[in-house]
């Protein structure tokens, strides 16, 4: 295990893109943790000062101010908290739904497997953004419902992945041994099969972070996610739409924030995939 980890670390170090991605992710987490201390105007997440509206970027307001005179730099910093929170909670919820179903389907096989997988296929036959849009439109637009909507459109991927892992794990000797000593079904499932098939899921989940942040921003942009005055990046670009041709900074900076975070998470994901897939490494001549 330690050998594998140090191997992985060596590959990460060798790939400049993965190093860049991980550093940005690290920085993003740091910024979101320290937001109240680094943001120059922490109160600007809520309060407005009309007299300061539409200031272009300057020393006092590095990213300028929006239509209500709020400091965009501070709001972008606070936005990182929301994006990371949505990422963690939405993926967490998706895992909570998807993993038990996957392990049950993979381990039991037969009719149970068939039913679970057909339901999974149904959910997978919607593009995830579409399903998330439909669900949050119907549940009512707010950030919590957007998170639920994302989780509902995301869990089938984890079910599918965990199922295929569980199928291979259930044939292993320790599972047979547990069965032989008469361990109950639930114990075998959650104490033996699940822990041994969890690694690819965790990797996949960390790779999905970028996608979830992007989906959340898109939902907010369409008015289906966070509501004003939340400093959510997608919402900030959406409210800036009316003014962006005359005041470019209002949409530009929140958009860059979305792009950089999604980009960083995707770089890390791409790197992880290369490390974990020996076939791709073999092709490196």
């Amino acid at each position: 295990m330690i050998d594998r980890l140090s191997n992985a670390f060596r590959y990460i170090k060798r790939s400049p893109l993965t190093v860049t991605g991980s550093s940005i992710v690290f920085l993003l987490i740091l910024v979101s943790l320290l937001a109240p201390w680094i943001a120059p105007y922490p109160k600007d997440t809520g309060t407005s000062h009309i007299e300061e509206a539409f200031h272009s970027p300057r020393l006092k307001h590095p990213f300028g101010t929006d239509e209500l005179g709020r400091d965009i730099f501070s709001r972008v910093i606070f936005g990182s908290r929301i994006s990371l929170k949505v990422g963690v909670l939405a993926i967490g919820l998706a895992l909570l739904i998807g993993m038990p179903l996957g392990v049950i389907a993979g381990y039991s096989g037969g009719a149970i497997d068939e039913v679970i997988m057909r339901v999974t296929d149904t959910f997978l036959s919607f593009p995830s953004l579409l399903l998330a849009m439909a669900i949050s439109a119907i549940l009512g637009p707010n950030l919590r419902n957007a998170m639920i909507a994302i989780a509902i459109s995301w869990w089938p991927w984890y079910t599918r992945l965990l199922r295929s892992e569980a199928i291979s794990v259930r044939e292993r000797d320790f599972v047979t041994a547990a069965k032989a000593v008469g361990a109950p079904w639930g114990r075998i499932l959650f104490k033996h099969v699940l822990p041994n098939s969890i690694v690819p899921i965790i990797v996949q989940a960390s790779m999905d972070f970028g996608g979830v942040i992007l989906t959340c921003a898109a939902l907010s942009f369409l008015g289906l996610g966070a509501q004003p005055p939340t400093p959510e990046w997608g919402l900030m670009t959406s409210t800036g739409r009316t003014f962006f041709l005359t005041h470019w900074w209002i949409v530009t900076f929140p958009g860059i924030a979305i792009f950089i975070s999604v980009f960083a998470f995707n770089l890390v994901g791409d790197g992880l995939r290369e490390i974990l897939d020996p076939k791709m490494r073999r092709a490196r001549r």
Partner: peptide, 28 residues
């Protein structure tokens, strides 16, 4: 490396934002 950066960037771009930036640059 360049093409990887380019292709990962393409996937990471928020489309609605890219649309507005293109309008800013090519229209305005």
């Amino acid at each position: 490396h360049l093409s990887r950066v380019f292709s990962i960037a393409g996937v990471a771009l928020p489309t609605f934002w890219l649309a507005m930036i293109l309008q800013l640059v090519f229209f305005k």
